[in-house]
Design a protein around this nucleic acid. Structure first.
Lengths: 132, 132
DNA sequence: CTCGGTGCAAACGTTTTGCAGAGCA
DNA sequence: TGCTCTGCAAAACGTTTGCACCGAG
């Protein structure tokens, strides 16, 4: 597992994650690619998502919910998750490096980075609640 | 499942989470209580952790790793997680409510709160790395 | 030709759930 | 007594892994 070869499937998986701003799960990527790659197996999707994340080409998001979700946008940014429907979206706010310094002082850890997840209600679910 | 009764086991589970600042998993709580409550079952631990979280008495932490972890400290605070050993600790920094306002403007979500997770290397693992 | 990648299926660890019986109010 | 809670076991769910074959370099 040292020198990686180029595989069509891995490329396709990568492109799926990058071009789908919904922050897909492995299952989602699998379902998306299955029609054009009928022989694709779910294990391969998991393996490649892991490899891509390890190589720093995509990122695994630590969100609430059952399945891991992936993000193809590597610019530092945060996420919002809807409490009702689980929808996960990007939030572009400037990265506050001072927080890392403060946390380092307080904890004694060598802080590398931080991630922020906002939690709330998305516009669609807010509209539904008014109806109900 | 509407009116809750008081059960000794739920009380014991709650106290375990509150008094163990390691942010225990369900498994941890189970192992901790098993000696004094030999009939305890893991399913009951999961059920009660879910109930306690739903009631706002404890909090489920969205950290990296296999098993869910719980926190009995309900004051708003953040967490650091060690990349090496997975250790999870509290970080007390003042809550920045302005971030919620900004995120609300940017996303259109009704933001209720945000959580911050720092990632880095804990002092113990940093020491080990020097040795290696 | 070699070694990494893939498909398949079995296995794993975590969490949920259906059920019958126990226990709190 | 009525309804919740518990223990148990099975199963659901997401994810990982062993293996034999396939395919890129």
């Amino acid at each position: 597992m040292v020198v990686r070869r180029q595989s069509k499937i891995r490329q396709a998986i990568y492109e799926t994650v990058v071009s789908h701003p919904v922050h897909p799960t492995a299952e989602y990527v699998y379902e998306h690619l299955k029609p054009r790659h009928p022989s694709l197996s779910l294990g391969t999707v998991y393996r490649n998502l892991g490899i891509l994340a390890e190589q720093g080409l995509i990122r695994k998001i630590g969100a609430q919910g059952d399945a891991d979700r992936f993000d193809g946008n590597m610019e530092p940014h945060s996420h919002v998750q809807c409490r009702e429907c689980g929808r996960l979206e990007d939030v572009f706010l400037s990265y506050d490096a001072q927080m890392d310094e403060k946390a380092q002082e307080v904890t004694g850890f060598q802080i590398k980075e931080h991630s922020v997840i906002f939690s709330g209600i998305c516009p669609q679910c807010a509209a539904k609640e008014k109806t109900a």
